[in-house]
Measured scan of single mutants.
Amino acid sequence: SSGAIIYTVELKRYGGPLGITISGTEEPFDPIIISSLTKGGLAERTGAIHIGDRILAINSSSLKGKPLSEAIHLLQMAGETVTLKIKKQTD
Rank of each mutant, 00 (worst) to 15 (best):
Ser1Lys: 11
Ser1His: 10
Ser2Arg: 10
Ser2Asp: 05
Ser2Phe: 09
Ser2Gln: 09
Gly3Met: 12
Ala4Met: 13
Ile5Ala: 09
Ile6Cys: 04
Ile6Glu: 14
Ile6Ala: 08
Tyr7Phe: 14
Tyr7Thr: 15
Tyr7His: 15
Thr8Arg: 05
Thr8Phe: 04
Val9Asn: 02
Val9Phe: 06
Val9Arg: 03
Val9His: 05
Glu10Asp: 08
Glu10Ser: 08
Glu10Gln: 08
Glu10Leu: 07
Leu11Tyr: 04
Leu11Phe: 09
Leu11Thr: 03
Leu11Arg: 01
Leu11Lys: 10
Lys12Ile: 08
Lys12Ser: 05
Lys12Met: 05
Arg13Pro: 14
Arg13Val: 09
Arg13Gly: 10
Arg13Asp: 08
Gly15Ala: 10
Gly16Ala: 10
Pro17Ala: 08
Leu18Pro: 04
Leu18His: 00
Ile20Pro: 00
Ile20Cys: 06
Thr21Met: 11
Ile22Tyr: 00
Ile22Pro: 00
Ile22Ala: 00
Ile22Trp: 00
Ser23Trp: 04
Ser23Arg: 06
Thr25Leu: 05
Glu26Thr: 08
Glu27Gln: 12
Glu27Met: 07
Pro28Arg: 08
Pro28Asn: 07
Phe29Ser: 13
Phe29Met: 13
Asp30Lys: 09
Ile32Asn: 01
Ile33Ala: 12
Ile33Cys: 14
Ile33Phe: 10
Ile34Pro: 00
Ile34Met: 00
Ile34Ser: 00
Ser35Trp: 09
Ser35Pro: 01
Ser35Lys: 09
Ser36Leu: 02
Ser36Met: 08
Ser36Glu: 08
Thr38Asn: 11
Lys39Ser: 10
Lys39Tyr: 04
Gly40Gln: 06
Gly40Glu: 08
Gly41Ala: 02
Gly41Leu: 02
Gly41Tyr: 04
Gly41Gln: 05
Leu42Thr: 15
Leu42Ala: 12
Ala43Met: 03
Ala43Gln: 03
Glu44Pro: 01
Arg45Leu: 07
Arg45Trp: 01
Thr46Asp: 05
Gly47Gln: 14
Gly47Glu: 09
Gly47Val: 00
Gly47Lys: 14
His50Asn: 11
His50Tyr: 04
Gly52Thr: 03
Arg54Cys: 12
Ile55Arg: 00
Ile55Leu: 14
Ile55Met: 10
Leu56Lys: 00
Leu56Asp: 04
Leu56Ala: 01
Ala57Val: 03
Ala57His: 04
Ile58Arg: 02
Ile58Glu: 01
Asn59Ala: 02
Asn59Asp: 08
Asn59Arg: 00
Ser60Arg: 08
Ser61Asp: 10
Ser61Leu: 13
Ser61Cys: 13
Ser61Gly: 07
Lys64Tyr: 10
Lys64Thr: 10
Gly65Ser: 08
Gly65Val: 01
Lys66Ala: 08
Lys66Phe: 02
Lys66Glu: 05
Lys66Met: 12
Pro67Thr: 12
Pro67Ile: 06
Leu68Glu: 03
Leu68Lys: 11
Ser69Ile: 05
Glu70Gly: 06
Glu70Ile: 06
Glu70Lys: 10
His73Leu: 12
Leu74Val: 15
Leu75Phe: 15
Gln76Asp: 12
Gln76Phe: 04
Met77Thr: 12
Met77His: 11
Met77Lys: 14
Met77Ile: 15
Ala78Pro: 09
Thr83Asn: 08
